[in-house]
Amino acid sequence: MAASAHETNIRCSAEAAKNFVDWYYRQVNEAKPIAQGYVNGNATYDRAGHAPADICINGLVVATPQEWEKLLEQQRQCPKQTDPNQKLVRYDVEVFNCHVINPDYRFAAPQKMLDLHAPTDGVRMMMMLTVGGTVYFGTGRNKGDGYFAKERFQDVFILVPNWDVLGKPGAKVGRKYLVASQIYRTF
């Protein structure tokens, strides 16, 4: 059986997917930064010469996660609205799914990680995560609040290990997996 079918990989990828989805959409909904979740600016990946994350938003290629943050900020703008229950943009995740597409990811991996973790350990995983849901415009903080407009969204991420965090067991700060690629679509 291929390593990617290993039980540990499947479980760990599902856990990683859930952690990422919980974190990412909470940050977006609370207008907090998300750039630290991308490979851009990660010292280890930068040193090894990894290309910046390819981010495609509704057909528009944005160069950096910061630019994507700016688009999200632009989306939230409504200076005249004073009612807190009508001024937010809220992403509600309804469905997500994740596959390990390379259980033996090696790019920029410290030798220690290669020695320590076999491809069946659910650590050195490259994953594809798809997320589906609804984005509400002009709404409040909670599910079920009234809204002005809504759209469906589909978000796809390629996630790769963040060696800086995975290499330090017990590390409390930082994301375990980073976005190397993203496609976002509303419909």
Binding site: L60, V61, Q74, Q77, C78, K80, Q81, F148, E151, R185
Partner: peptide, 17 residues
């Protein structure tokens, strides 16, 4: 209207690279 409510991002055509 955009000053009153958040505005969805524009949707561009397919981006095939």
């Amino acid at each position: 209207l955009a000053a009153w409510f958040p505005t969805p991002l524009p949707r561009l055509p397919s981006n095939l690279r």
